[in-house]
């Protein structure tokens, strides 16, 4: 054929499928796409994990509060809980009770020292619990904020390539550019796909973690007050 210019173009795709789009993409775009897919998988794993954890935690706290305020003696409750590894509110209770019992078993009589020790134990336990609640939430925040940019980077790179292919072929038709642009846009689509759930879930989950943490602290304050009252009664 006369004048047909053979150029190293992105060969026009007869039908655009996700696989062909991916396979014909540049290596950088491929890396971006794979990275975003992994980020999406991992962030959804975190979301599911946290959602399960929080709902469990809430049920646990409800149950514990019910038994705690049921009039059962603290000693009894402590004995029933200390056997297994306590979680959430129970762990706060167990830690404080342990410190209390140790102090009395050692014969310490300093009211002030006991109170401050118990408060410190409570603080440490609460921060450990909330740390467990909020672990890996930061990954969601990172994906949510960086995902679109990473996708955009893939898109810019892909469009750069397709414009280079225009320059190489002297052919300005959409048929030459379209596959490259479609590939490139796939990267942005994946970036958004990963980022949107991550942002939404991060907001929801961090709010929930904050609520649970607040509840733990409220209980700790209450329990600390109870213990200090008991210490006063015993001291007299």
């Amino acid at each position: 054929m006369d004048g047909v210019t053979e150029t190293a173009l992105v060969s026009p795709v007869s039908h655009l499928s996700l696989i062909s789009l991916f396979l014909e993409a540049d290596i950088v775009v491929k890396a971006v796409i794979i990275g975003l897919l992994l980020a999406s998988v991992w962030s959804w794993a975190i979301i599911i994990d946290k959602a399960i954890l929080y709902s469990k935690m809430r049920k646990q706290m409800d149950r514990f509060e019910k038994t705690f305020w049921s009039g059962q003696s603290l000693e009894e409750l402590y004995r029933s809980l200390s056997g297994r590894t306590p979680q959430g509110m129970a762990s706060v209770f167990v830690a404080a009770m342990r410190e209390w019992k140790r102090s009395f078993e050692a014969g310490a009589r300093s009211q002030f020292g006991l109170q401050s020790r118990i408060d410190k134990v409570l603080d440490v336990t609460i921060s450990r619990e909330t740390g467990r609640l909020e672990s890996r939430l930061l990954f969601l925040a990172t994906v949510g904020s960086a995902g679109p940019f990473v996708g955009l980077f893939g898109t810019v790179w892909g469009i750069m390539n397709s414009f280079q292919s225009i320059a190489a072929s002297n052919n300005t038709s959409l048929a030459v550019v379209a596959p490259g642009i479609a590939e490139a846009l796939l990267a942005t689509a994946l970036g958004l796909l990963a980022a949107i759930p991550a942002v939404v879930a991060y907001n929801k989950l961090s709010a929930e973690a904050g609520k649970i943490g607040g509840r733990l602290e409220g209980f700790a304050d209450e329990f600390s007050a109870i213990l200090s009252r008991q210490a006063d009664e015993r001291g007299e």
């Binding site: 998988v41 962030s43 959804w44 794993a45 975190i46 599911i48 994990d49 399960i52």
Partner: peptide, 11 residues
């Protein structure tokens, strides 16, 4: 525990 989340997400 986080394994279940990862599995579900990947699936």
């Amino acid at each position: 525990m986080w394994r279940t989340g990862l599995l579900i997400s990947a699936a």
